[in-house]
Design a protein around this nucleic acid. Structure first.
Length: 253
DNA sequence: GCGACAG
DNA sequence: ATCTTGTCGC
């Protein structure tokens, strides 16, 4: 799918990255979904053994039929360190590269990480949402900032994630007796819709299906396993598979 | 100064 | 996240 023109470079100093977040957070829109979210894109990243390259994956899940309809992967060298609070500068390049390969434009991005449940209210889910203009939701496995009371033990039980007096997300139990996930708004969404999306996409596992499948995919690719099904459905003419030595820059700068 | 700290 | 083996439980 076509993506909007770049808003800013991804190779910046830590200081500039923080300034950029303070500047871009004003662009985050919190609203009730304008249309039903049928195609949900799960996004996740894994790192190559040496940790110098990131593998990004986008798995499109058809919420209506309850099945995966597309999977795309992209590998990019890392140019930004892991700094809590600045995750998007490290992972977004690989995720956007994979997103560009997607044929079916998703209705919403379900990102492995936080949305506004972030120190500056601009986690990776917000960044990807603002960058693409698409609605987005953050679903993280642990807290970055904020406090909460443990939710009940059953699937669907939840509690508020608070940062002082501000509500920034929801701690949601997606499976009985399993550690809850943290859900927050990314862009063009509201917390109620975000929570419903995550719970609806969970099929017996802790993580929502799109994100869970994306995680399995990047983990396999980063480990150097299969090399053919990097793209599904297959793209015409050698399009989505691996080409030896990366002629077209699969592993580009 | 000390502890916390998405992936 | 990654490095790592087996292991306990449904």
């Amino acid at each position: 799918m076509k993506l909007p023109s770049p808003i800013h470079p991804w190779r910046l100093s830590i200081q500039r990255a923080v300034e950029l977040q303070r500047e871009l957070r004003a662009k985050v829109q919190i609203e009730r979904p304008r249309k039903p979210w049928r195609y949900v894109a799960g996004l996740d990243v894994a790192y190559m053994p040496a940790g110098l390259a990131a593998v990004g994956a986008v798995v499109v899940w058809d919420r209506l039929e309850g099945r995966v309809i597309e999977e795309q992967v992209a590998v990019r060298r890392c140019h930004f360190p892991y700094v809590p609070g600045l995750l998007s500068f490290r992972e977004a390049p690989a995720l956007l590269a994979a997103l560009r390969r997607v044929r079916r434009p998703p209705d919403v991005l379900l990102v492995d990480g936080h949305g506004v449940a972030h120190p500056r209210r601009f986690g990776v889910a917000c960044h990807l949402g603002v960058w693409t203009g698409l609605p987005s939701v953050g679903c993280a496995k642990s807290v970055l900032v904020g406090c909460f009371d443990p939710p009940g033990p059953n699937r669907g039980d939840r509690s508020a994630l608070m940062d002082g007096d501000e509500r920034i997300g929801t701690v949601l139990r997606t499976r009985a007796r399993v550690r809850p996930v943290i859900v927050s708004v990314g862009h063009r969404a509201n917390l109620a819709a975000a929570e419903k999306l995550v719970l609806d996409c969970c099929r017996g596992f802790r993580l929502p299906e799109p994100a869970r499948v994306a995680h399995q995919l990047v983990t396999r690719v980063a480990a150097g396993i299969p090399a053919k099904d990097w793209a599904w459905p297959p793209r015409g003419q050698n399009g989505g598979g691996v080409r030896e030595a990366d002629p077209q820059g699969t592993v580009a700068q």
